[in-house]
Amino acid sequence: MAVATLANPTRFSALAGRLLPFVLAAALITLAVGLYLSLFVAPADYQQGETVRIMFIHVPAAWLSMFGYGLMAVAALGTLVWRHPLADVAAKATAPIGAAFTFIALATGSLWGKPMWGTWWQWDARLTSVLVLFLMYLGLIALWRAVEDPARAARAAAVLILVGSVNLPIIKFSVDWWWTLHQPASVFRMGGPTIHPSLLVPLLVMAGGATLLFLALVLIGMRNELMRRRIRALGLRAAAAR
């Protein structure tokens, strides 16, 4: 299917509607398998003990907090460079979902940190840069709500998203560039993962399921946003006809 075909909001909405049940079903099945592996099959870690089970939700949420912002950065390029009609819809729909997953990453990280580090929070580079990411999501949501004209809001949000995307490499490499309480990368790193397969497999299955769920929620959010814009257009047309 041509990308130009997907640029038509009605066609995109219909296609998303057909895809959604499959993506949702795949997400739920993968998450069910992942939760079973995480809670009943994976062994306790030799250092963290049972607390390692928090990692099976914390790490996927942390990945998705960055994945969501990455999607928004691509969409922002779509708005500014290609003026794709769905680009701003995608970015706006992704923001609250990305914010929710970033909140999960922060909250579960804190719940892991208290028993493991002895503190709920530490102002180290990784934790602080993820908190900044969360605040950027909230700022963008506020921006879209504050500007009434969708075209103006889209351009302003796209610029802000691209400026904010400088935070993504800071988050990723913060554990290498600075001394942090947060441990360095143990999955996506040069030389391969340092995690034993008995813990790595449940982690990857949970990450796959969470990513499918994230994408399904973005599709629902995009269909909602398209409907919101159709309502606005109809309202403006009705007002002009009066």
Binding site: L39, F40, A44, G49, E50, T51, R53, I54, I57, H58, A61, P96, I97, A100, F103, I104, A107, T108, L111, W112, K114, P115, L213, L217, I220, G221, N224
Partner: peptide, 29 residues
Amino acid sequence: MDLGPHAGFIIGAYLVTAAVVAGLVAWLL
């Protein structure tokens, strides 16, 4: 399933996640 001395933190983490995801799905629907 014995979650050890930090069971409260582990259960809390899963409950927070479930609540946030459920809230997100409910809001979208």
